[in-house]
């Protein structure tokens, strides 16, 4: 398979997943802030700043906006074309990548991505957003699920499919760790206790961002506690949005691509993914909390980046050449 094709499939999948995760985070934060009793400019800032911190978009946001409030953050993360990681930008980039591999992916996959792109750019999406932004975020999540479902149902599960899995799981693992970290950035209002109502609501929000609340409830029937949430999202073996599950999926896809069995590694990327996976297999939440959850999550994110670059170096090493721009490739028919 051409390296460029592998690269496009990988990014196509990452961008779709990123659009979905952004939609989830905004959805949940909107719902949580609706529960807040007090609201003034200061509280809004406190409620929405963590979103920017989580997405690492703060500097760019500050360049364009003086104040932090719900409307501005939502606009910035949803529709802003200045923000390369806004949902709209992610969808546009996913579609761009899909177009270059139009003959590798199935027509049904193309139609899902194209449909999401056309819809996000339609006046209808703006109307939905105005009347209830949560509806828009739900639709984005739906499209993403349809895309992955369609992919599994229509695409030969060969090398290309595996690159799509690599992109999906890497992005999802990264995002899950960021969502968990979100709580680190949320300050408990003065006078609130750890384990109090507000604290519980916030931890529940973290679970909901990962669609993990219901699954979590099936295991933990008592109080929502920070360490049990962290344990669930980080280390659960079979919940499909836990970091461990995603790293497992990433590692498996890498091994399928190289044909190497999973007890060994064929290249540096597999060594890194395998080591991270084994750390997650044997980690205990008690140690993690003791070490500091934020530091631990930071470390996970760094290791995911390292594994991703090793993967790209292995299969798409030469990709630094810029793609020709539209203007440069105009030729008459």
């Amino acid at each position: 398979m051409l390296s460029r094709v592998a690269d496009s499939l990988y990014w196509l999948s990452r961008y779709i997943e990123r659009a979905e995760n952004n939609a989830r985070i905004l959805d949940v934060n909107l719902q949580v802030t609706l529960d807040c009793e007090r609201s003034g400019p200061a509280e809004e800032r406190v409620n929405w700043l963590p979103i920017l911190a989580t997405l690492e978009d703060q500097t760019l946001f500050n360049k364009h906006h003086a104040t932090v409030n719900a409307e501005m953050v939502c606009d910035f993360v949803t529709f802003s074309s200045e923000n390369p990681n806004s949902i709209l930008s992610c969808v546009a980039r996913a579609r761009e990548n899909a177009r270059t591999v139009r003959d590798y992916i199935s027509s049904e996959m193309w139609e899902r991505i194209n449909g999401l792109y056309l819809w996000m750019n339609s006046p209808e999406a703006r109307l939905v957003y105005k009347s209830s932004a949560i509806d828009l975020y739900r639709s984005v999540v739906d499209y993403s699920h349809q895309f992955h479902g369609t992919t599994d149902a229509t695409l030969t599960q060969g090398e290309g499919w595996n690159f799509i899995q690599v992109g999906k799981y890497l992005e999802r693992a990264d995002s899950a760790s960021r969502i968990l970290d979100l709580k680190y950035h949320i300050l408990l209002p003065e006078g609130e206790k750890v384990g109090g109502t507000v604290d519980t609501v916030q931890w529940q929000a973290v679970l909901k961002s990962c669609s993990a609340f219901e699954a979590y409830r099936k295991i933990h029937t008592g109080q929502v506690t920070p360490w049990s949430v962290a344990e669930f999202i980080l280390l659960h073996e079979s919940f499909p949005r836990s970091v461990r599950f995603c790293v497992d999926g990433f590692d498996r896809a890498l091994h399928r691509i190289s044909g190497c069995d999973r007890a060994h590694f064929a290249n540096p990327a597999e060594r890194l993914s395998g080591r991270l996976l084994s750390d997650l297999h044997y980690a205990a939440i008690k140690d993690i909390i003791q070490q500091g959850l934020h530091q631990y999550l930071d470390n996970i994110q760094v290791r995911l980046v390292e594994a991703a670059s090793a993967m790209r170096k292995q299969y798409c090493e030469w990709m630094e050449t810029p793609m020709p721009t539209a203007a440069a490739s105009v030729q008459k028919m």
Binding site: L2, S3, R4, W318, T321, P324
Partner: peptide, 21 residues
């Protein structure tokens, strides 16, 4: 394969396409 310019490279006057293998 459909390729664009950056998928190909020339080494010792031989043209190659860059694949994952």
């Amino acid at each position: 394969e459909i390729v664009v310019g950056q998928d190909l490279t020339v080494k010792d006057d031989v043209v190659f396409m860059k694949t994952t293998k």
